[in-house]
């Protein structure tokens, strides 16, 4: 049994290896840690923008036939939709992303998942601007676009779903990445049925949200 005092685990911000029981105050970096993430092929932050490509494991490639619309070339934008398309309007996020992906916007990466989890911090950290797109039941009609600050506490008790603000916070603390983050909340009306397809009201709201957000993604207008 080690004689190390329990408080030794209370490491400082820079004491990054809790497995090293006799760590020097400035330990040598693990050559495997601190390098670019080994998983995934997206470029490290600060390298050339990922134009027209998407991380291999997260999205399908953009449609070849879609017209390319120029975006500001220096910004890497991620549109991350989440929700369950099998629960009616909960599919708003994925549908939004589907529509954006079909446009083939340069510099815009898309990704879809059922729910957010910690690994999305890795994806978020590789972009300059991130839009989280979700169905919203308590939002104003037809949608809202809000800036998102990193979470200061953890408003979650389960790993089944991690809120966007926590993802942004993890990207900041684990990757030293500070993308501008936004939430697009599209008003939903039916999340209870086991049904694929949006309600008429949600379809209407989706169109309004797309009409507002696409010019931002295309670089025709600036993000707020």
């Amino acid at each position: 049994m080690s004689s190390t005092h329990p408080d030794d685990h209370r490491a400082s911000r820079h004491d990054t290896d809790p497995t090293d029981r006799n760590a020097d105050p400035k330990p040598e970096a693990d050559p495997a840690i601190g390098t670019a993430p080994a998983i995934g092929t997206a470029p490290a932050i600060g390298t050339a923008p990922a134009i027209g490509t998407a991380p291999a494991m997260d999205t399908a490639p953009a449609m070849d036939t879609a017209p390319a619309i120029d975006a500001a070339p220096t910004k890497r934008v991620l549109v991350l939709g989440f929700g369950n398309p099998g629960r009616a309007d909960d599919g708003l996020g994925p549908r939004f992303v589907e529509r954006v992906e079909a446009l083939g916007l340069r510099g815009v990466t898309t990704s879809v998942d059922y729910q957010l989890n910690i690994e999305h911090a890795d994806l978020v950290a590789q972009h300059d601007i991130v839009l989280f797109v979700d169905a919203a039941t308590d939002a104003e009609e037809p949608f809202y676009l809000r800036t998102l600050a990193p979470a200061s506490s953890a408003p979650t008790v389960s790993s089944h779903h991690v809120p966007p603000a926590v993802i942004v916070s993890l990207a900041r603390d684990c990757y030293d990445a500070r993308p501008r983050a936004f939430v697009v909340g599209i008003r939903a009306h039916d999340l209870d049925r086991f049904h694929e397809g949006l309600t008429e009201e949600a379809e209407f709201n989706l169109e309004r949200a797309l009409a507002h957000v696409i010019p931002l993604l295309a670089g025709e207008r600036d993000f707020p």
Binding site: R10, D15, I33, P37, I39, E119, A121, S153, L170
Partner: peptide, 27 residues
């Protein structure tokens, strides 16, 4: 300190490893 954000703040490399290990399993 009882949440993942505190872990990420105090042990960022460990937090990043956790993220990438979860991601690997998902892949």
């Amino acid at each position: 300190q009882r949440h993942v954000l505190a872990v990420a703040k105090s042990f960022p490399e460990l937090g990043r490893q956790g993220i990438l290990m979860r991601k690997f399993g998902q892949e």
